[in-house]
Computed example of a mutant assay.
Amino acid sequence: MASAIEVRDARRGDAAALVALWRELSTAGGHPSRLPATPSEAAVEVAVSKHLDDPFGRLLVGELDGVVHGMAYLRRTAISPLHEDLTVTIEYLHVSDEARRHGLGKALIAEAVGWAEHESCAHLAVVAPAVAREANRFLARLGLGQAGVLRFANTHTVRRRLAAEHAPNLLALLSSRRSVAARRAQLGRSFPAAVPPLGAVPPLGTVPPLGADVTYPAEPESAGT
């Protein structure tokens, strides 16, 4: 006898099942992922209530014989900042290990397709972990090709890496540009009749007119660092 499948919008009472699914999703493959930590049931209840009133997003759950075993988050947005076409993106698509190969994943995607058609969205996108081979093969069979790789990190990590690897060179470049700009501005004020075009470099050996009051800006504090 075939299992009964139902896909619907999540309710507050689904909080415990959603927490369990998130915990399983964040440790898929036997090792922790970069996803945020598993939220509390109270936090999930609040989040579910917000999604019920969101016209641009839906949090779905999939039931197998009356028990929640799957979830997916749908977002309706422009396909790019340069196009008017809309797309529905499926994120955090997950079916529990014990409920796989029963059609629950297909049912969740079918609901996303139906919503996309209802909202006149001509495109569908799915975010899937690059290391999830089985999931990517499943999506490829449905006609979804790879368009990119989503990388995830907290802002503190990225800022720390930028400071460690790029800041010294970046600060030196900015200091050099500020020094050149200040020197050109000062020369422009001293010799208004001989201001070179923007970006031009005065020839070496140029001597200012006799009696001209030439001053130079102080060395930037960051110079030489």
Score class of each variant (00 low, 15 high):
115 W>Q: 08
130 A>K: 10
171 L>H: 11
152 F>M: 13
140 A>V: 00
183 R>A: 14
109 I>K: 06
138 F>R: 00
139 L>V: 00
106 K>D: 14
142 L>W: 00
106 K>A: 14
92 Y>T: 07
111 E>K: 13
109 I>T: 06
97 D>K: 12
161 R>V: 04
173 L>H: 13
154 N>G: 02
145 G>R: 10
128 A>Q: 08
133 R>L: 10
153 A>W: 03
170 L>C: 05
94 H>S: 06
157 T>Q: 03
159 R>A: 13
158 V>P: 00
131 V>M: 11
136 N>V: 00
148 G>A: 12
166 H>T: 11
153 A>T: 07
176 S>F: 09
132 A>Y: 03
179 S>K: 14
168 P>C: 04
99 A>E: 08
89 T>N: 10
104 L>C: 02
158 V>M: 00
141 R>C: 01
144 L>Y: 09
91 E>V: 05
166 H>Y: 12
143 G>T: 03
119 E>H: 15
121 C>I: 04
174 L>T: 10
176 S>Y: 10
121 C>V: 04
124 L>C: 05
163 A>N: 09
175 S>E: 15
136 N>I: 01
177 R>K: 12
158 V>G: 01
150 L>C: 10
171 L>S: 11
137 R>D: 12
106 K>T: 14
121 C>D: 07
128 A>W: 00
104 L>P: 02
107 A>K: 08
101 R>K: 15
96 S>I: 03
90 I>Q: 06
126 V>W: 02
101 R>V: 02
95 V>L: 03
109 I>Y: 03
123 H>W: 15
178 R>I: 09
168 P>S: 02
171 L>M: 07
90 I>P: 02
155 T>K: 01
141 R>Y: 01
174 L>F: 07
115 W>S: 06
157 T>H: 03
171 L>C: 08
156 H>D: 14
166 H>F: 12
121 C>E: 10
173 L>D: 13
121 C>S: 12
135 A>L: 07
92 Y>S: 15
167 A>V: 09
120 S>T: 15
116 A>I: 06
151 R>V: 08
124 L>Y: 03
108 L>Y: 02
98 E>Q: 15
159 R>L: 08
127 V>D: 14
137 R>A: 06
141 R>E: 04
98 E>V: 15
119 E>G: 01
147 A>L: 09
165 E>I: 06
119 E>Q: 14
145 G>H: 11
95 V>G: 08
167 A>F: 10
164 A>P: 00
115 W>H: 05
133 R>G: 01
173 L>M: 09
154 N>L: 02
163 A>K: 09
179 S>I: 01
89 T>D: 07
128 A>D: 05
141 R>N: 02
180 V>T: 13
127 V>R: 05
133 R>P: 00
102 H>C: 12
163 A>H: 12
177 R>L: 14
151 R>W: 09
99 A>Y: 05
